[in-house]
């Protein structure tokens, strides 16, 4: 039998860190055991990062740390000291949605929308290192994100369309995306 030691008093001792969140330096105090997911959602009130499985299996809680996608349910808040964190709330710039956000919304890649923040941030990192990904490369980059509704086809199309627009092409959705299969 594991001995249970009351923890509540210890937990009142909070960790205190400073890091860059969505481009701005923040200081936050939180119970030291907390994951980045919990710190974001509970202590910083940024609930755009979603809670899916808390076991690193679904990809719903993905955020960017120093530009790379990580699962915030598996990262400790404490480890963020001095790091740069981007969440979905920081993806739009100056009130202007990121091209990926535009295409996800327009093409219906977000249905219930619960998995969308994780997909969007992971895709953002992909397009930053690879402006013209193939379907295989999109698949590989987004293979850790699960969607249950599911919008996979539209997610492929949204990533491709956003990539084209970010390359400066005047891209429009393919004809069948607009007009269906006739």
């Amino acid at each position: 039998m594991i001995k249970i030691k009351p923890m509540a008093e210890d937990k009142k001792q909070k960790a205190h860190i400073r890091f860059v969140l969505n481009g701005e330096t923040v200081e936050v105090a939180f119970a030291p055991h907390k994951t980045l997911l919990e710190v974001l959602r509970e202590d910083l009130n940024l609930t755009g990062t979603k809670h899916g499985c808390e076991l690193g299996e679904c990809g719903t809680c993905a955020v960017l740390v120093d530009g790379l996608p990580i699962l915030s349910c598996l990262a400790l808040g404490l480890d963020m000291e001095g790091r740069e964190v981007t969440t979905i709330e920081g993806m739009a710039e100056g009130g202007c949605l990121h091209p990926l956000q535009v295409t996800f919304a327009d093409l219906g890649a977000a249905q219930c929308g619960y998995c969308s923040p994780g997909f969007l941030l992971t895709a953002k990192e992909l397009l930053e290192r690879n402006p013209a990904p193939t379907r295989d490369e999109i698949r590989e980059a987004l293979s850790g994100n699960l969607c249950r509704c599911t919008g996979y086809i539209k997610i492929y199309e949204a990533v491709e369309l956003a990539a084209a627009r970010m390359r400066g092409e005047e891209a429009e959705p393919a004809r069948e995306i607009i007009h269906g299969y006739e």
Partner: peptide
């Protein structure tokens, strides 16, 4: 397009969780 698409892709849509 879904009218709530922009809220969902910007993290503003609030779920029960």
């Amino acid at each position: 397009s879904r009218v709530d698409g922009p809220a969902k892709v910007s993290g503003k849509a609030k779920y029960t969780y």
